[in-house]
């Protein structure tokens, strides 16, 4: 590989009161790779994503995107550097339509929004870009629906559409399959497969089938610490991982 890795995290740590949620995690990801983070509930996966995107400030460690330290940047600045995320618990604008949710993300990419008098609906370019994202995730028929009226699976799809609208270089997905039906999950996997060529994906996921299907590299997080990092085959073969998931003494 030439040049620095797209993402390089070194010794990042975060504690909540007494609880160590992230314990000096280091990890690298090259452009074009799909990296999956797995681990039992409460292992600190979401916390790690929050640290990457800047909603939480680490107590120690550095985060580099393309060799540049982004640790001091705000969430907003990181988004404009190409870091985009989805939420495990969907965070959507419930009173707005599906299209408006995506449109805002497109608008954010186009610069500031201090435009006071032209109706937002007349920006054909933004609308088209937003629509394209919806087509991508298969929500284009629901474009005019209020988000509050969406089913859980559709909300997950919308999360992804919004994240895509930010044209990310690194896409952080926090459990995109959680709450999806088997069929929707399959579709989501296929969709993520197709995204592999455009962007780099960092995915947190419990659905092992999906992880094994997608990931080039898998890291296992337990109690805030990286237990091991390797290919799907290596992870499957690891006793440590089995122990972590199934409990002590059950080997």
């Amino acid at each position: 590989m030439n040049g620095p890795p797209l993402l390089k995290v070194s010794g990042i740590a975060k504690r909540f009161d007494g609880l160590v949620a992230t314990d000096h995690v280091s990890l690298e990801q090259n452009a074009g790779e799909v990296h999956a983070l797995i681990g039992p509930n409460g292992a600190g996966k979401s916390t790690f994503v929050n640290l990457l995107c800047g909603s939480l400030r680490p107590d120690a460690g550095t985060i580099k995107l393309d060799g540049a330290d982004i640790g001091h940047l705000s969430t907003v600045e990181r988004v404009h550097r190409g870091l985009s995320r989805t939420f495990q618990m969907t965070q959507l604008l419930l009173d707005y339509s599906v299209l408006e949710n995506v449109q805002l993300a497109v608008q954010s990419q186009a610069g500031h929004s201090f435009r006071f008098f032209k109706s937002a609906r007349y920006d054909a370019k933004a609308m088209a870009a937003a629509m394209a994202c919806l087509v991508r995730v298969g929500l284009c028929e629901r474009a005019k629906v209020r988000v509050a009226d969406l089913a859980q699976g559709e909300r997950k799809q919308l999360e992804l559409a919004i994240a895509l609208a930010a044209k990310p270089r690194l896409l952080l997905l926090d459990e995109p399959m959680a709450g999806l039906s088997a069929l929707d999950s399959q579709n989501m996997v296929a969709l993520l497969q197709s995204l592999k060529t455009e962007t780099t994906i960092f995915i947190v996921e419990h659905d092992m089938n999906a992880v094994f299907a997608l990931a080039d590299r898998i890291s296992v997080l337990v109690n805030g610490r990286i237990l091991m990092s390797g290919t799907a085959a290596e992870v499957k073969a690891s006793d440590d991982v089995r122990r972590a998931y199934l409990g002590e003494g059950d080997v």
Binding site: C53, S74, V76, S108
Partner: peptide, 21 residues
């Protein structure tokens, strides 16, 4: 306007708005 769209978004979920930059 676009400004109004942003304003309404901020009412509904600030975290979401930050996440889209």
């Amino acid at each position: 306007s676009k400004f109004g769209l942003v304003l309404g978004g901020l009412r509904q979920n600030e975290q979401r708005m930050e996440a889209i930059g």
